[in-house]
Structure formats: structure tokens, C-alpha cells
């Protein structure tokens, strides 16, 4: 009897100590759910969702403060992925936050640019190069197409240009077999 009690108590102590040590050793840094949501978001950092960037929006979704359909750049596919991840019901994009647009990048009309640096301050991803009273330009590969630089420009010299397909970015299309309409022989036969 006493041996059994001792064995059980000993086991409990050993297992408890292992669990305690594991909780210290393998402590998760940050919130893994926020990171998973953040990985789905397109990282445009446009703020259309009402939060100052993708990470804050991910935090808000994880905290239950924001809905999953507030990210227009992520589009319909993004909402579906979020719904999958969070086990929630899919819902269409909330039009209040904007509509899904084809991916575009900002382009500065360099002849019109007055070098005011306002767009540089607005760019969330440091994709604009320039200095005061010097012409600015946008590094196309780094631009996320967030459009945040467009409103501050006093000279109205920034345009959003849709990204066109190149030989490198071109994708094979989903195979579709075209159904050909046969000449109407059958009804004729039936009539005969």
C-alpha cells in the first residue's frame, strides 16, 4: 500500500517536473496565431483594413476585434485562406474597406516631381528613393501598390500602373477543353 502511494507520488513528481521544465524550455515567443495570420496577409501595409499595417490587423483578427474580410489586396482568396485557418465561415470582402484591384505599382512622373519628400515619408516599405529638392523615384520591385504615396503628393505626379505579365511571370492557363457546338443534325433526324 505504502509502496504504491510512494510510486504514484514519485511518478507525479517526475512528470510534473518534466512538464514544468518543458514549459520553460519550449516557451513560445510571441503569438503563433498572429504570425500565421500575418503570413496569409499580403503585406501591402496599405491600412485599408483600418489598422496601421498587416501585423496590427493580424493581431486584431487573432484578438477577435476585426473581421476576416477587411483586406482588399488579399482579395477573395485571402479571405478563404483566413477562413480556413481560423475555422470561420467565409464571407465576401467588405466593400467599406475597398474593392479588390489588379496588382499595380506606383510610378512617379519624374518631370513633374518637385522633390518635396512627402511620398517618401508616406511609403510604408521604403520603396521610394530621393532627397529634398531632388527628383524621387520608386523602386518598382519593392513597391507593394498600397497607394499611400498618392494622396500626399502636392504635384499629383504619382500614378498607379497595373503590373503587366512578362515572359518570366507568365503562368500556364488552367486547361479547359472547349466544347464545340455540333451542327443541329439530331433534331432534323428526329423530325424525319
Amino acid at each position: 500500500m505504502i509502496t504504491a502511494l510512494l510510486v504514484m507520488a514519485g511518478l507525479a513528481l517526475v512528470l510534473g517536473a518534466t512538464l514544468g521544465a518543458a514549459s520553460v524550455l519550449f516557451k513560445t515567443q510571441g503569438d503563433p496565431l498572429v504570425d500565421k495570420i500575418d503570413a496569409i496577409l499580403p503585406q501591402t501595409q496599405c491600412g485599408q483594413c483600418g489598422y496601421p499595417g498587416c501585423k496590427p490587423y493580424a493581431t486584431a483578427i487573432a484578438g477577435g476585434d476585426a473581421d476576416i474580410n477587411q483586406c482588399p489586396p488579399g482579395g477573395d482568396e485571402g479571405v478563404r485562406k483566413l477562413a480556413d485557418l481560423l475555422g470561420r465561415e467565409y464571407k465576401p470582402l467588405n466593400a467599406e474597406h475597398g474593392v479588390e484591384k489588379p496588382k499595380s505599382v506606383a510610378v512617379i512622373d519624374e518631370a513633374t516631381c518637385i522633390g518635396c519628400t512627402l511620398c517618401i515619408q508616406a511609403c510604408p516599405v521604403d520603396a521610394i528613393v530621393g532627397a529634398a529638392k531632388q527628383m524621387h523615384t520608386i523602386v518598382g520591385d519593392l513597391c507593394t501598390g498600397c497607394e499611400l504615396c498618392v494622396p500626399p503628393c502636392p504635384a499629383d505626379c504619382i500614378d498607379m500602373v497595373p503590373v503587366t505579365e512578362t515572359v518570366e511571370s507568365w503562368k500556364w492557363r488552367y486547361p479547359v477543353f472547349e466544347l464545340k457546338v455540333q451542327p443541329a443534325t439530331l433534331p432534323a433526324k428526329e423530325a424525319a
Partner: peptide
């Protein structure tokens, strides 16, 4: 592209 945008956004902040 998203990963590099995230990195630059975090660096900027």
C-alpha cells in the same frame, strides 16, 4: 515579395 515587404515595414517602424 510579401516577406521582404514585411521586413522593410518592420525596419521602417
Amino acid at each position: 515579395a510579401a516577406d521582404s515587404a514585411r521586413e522593410r515595414f518592420e525596419f521602417r517602424n
